[in-house]
């Protein structure tokens, strides 16, 4: 067996795969990973996907408007409508995660092909039947929620930026975290009190640390140590919002 390629070699293989097929970095990486970084195997897998995916492609075409190559926001609205869910439903984020979709507000053909095949389904109505299971997984499996949460940062992030705007982060926290972590309700209140002039974009680190905060601290704020805890200042801000007297 060949040794596992390093970061640079991986990137080259991803580029190679992308030269032949239209798929994004996440998907390419995932497929190559599955194929144990054997480019031939990965290529065959994608070819199979395309061969067997004619029915899924039909489904995809249903949601694109005149001549576009990707599903846009309107398409997503009708996709959600067919699934019988609100577009703010957290489960749609989980679906995007499964699709390994790259940017919020778009689905590519390959997103559909890849995701539907992975779920072993052929149509939107099949997906609708799966919804309950997916929702249960998202609500009950911390690991899945964590992966979806982390995935969403890149999903929501604009390509040329390293951070996301606070309102977007707010939306993600509200959708993904408030149900599972009651403390996030207070957290959202805090975010609401931040004055316009103090609003800053949310960095990846801060975004990830909000998850850690939910898991490690949660309701038990006595555990929160702003002196040695190495929490981002944004989360310190929440702590001081709750305990104004603790501020030095």
């Amino acid at each position: 067996m060949k040794p596992k390629p390093n970061q640079a070699q991986e990137d080259i293989m991803i580029k190679d795969l992308q030269r032949v097929f239209q798929l994004n970095d996440l998907q390419a990486r995932e497929i190559l990973n599955q194929a144990q970084w054997n480019l031939q195997k990965a290529t065959n897998y994608v070819l199979d996907l395309q061969k067997s995916g004619s029915k899924i492609e039909e489904q995809f075409k249903k949601y694109i408007t005149n001549g576009q190559s990707v599903i846009d926001e309107n398409g997503i609205i009708s996709f959600c409508k067919d699934l019988g869910i609100d577009i703010m439903d957290p489960v749609i984020l989980y679906i995007s995660y499964i699709f390994k979709s790259e940017t919020m507000g778009n689905y590519t053909k390959f997103d559909f092909l890849y995701g539907f095949t992975l779920l072993k389904i052929q149509s939107t109505s099949d997906l609708k039947r799966e919804l309950k299971r997916l929702r249960d997984e998202l609500n009950n499996n911390r690991e899945i929620l964590k992966s979806v949460y982390k995935y969403c940062f890149d999903f929501a992030k604009k390509k040329n930026r390293k951070d996301i705007d606070l309102p977007i982060a707010q939306g993600l926290w509200d959708t993904l975290l408030t149900n599972t972590f009651p403390i996030m309700k207070k957290f959202m209140n805090y975010v609401g009190t931040i004055e316009e002039k103090d609003v800053k974009p949310i960095s990846r680190d801060t975004y990830y640390m909000v998850w850690e905060f939910c898991v490690q601290i949660g309701e038990d704020l006595a555990k929160y140590d702003y002196k040695t805890g190495a929490w981002p200042t944004f989360i310190d801000g929440f702590y001081f919002y709750l305990f104004p007297n603790h501020k030095q």
């Binding site: 390293k162 960095s203 990846r204 680190d205 981002p232 200042t233």
Partner: peptide, 10 residues
């Protein structure tokens, strides 16, 4: 200092 660490992390 914490803020600058965050900036450098970013």
């Amino acid at each position: 200092i914490k803020q600058q660490i965050e900036v450098l992390t970013e």
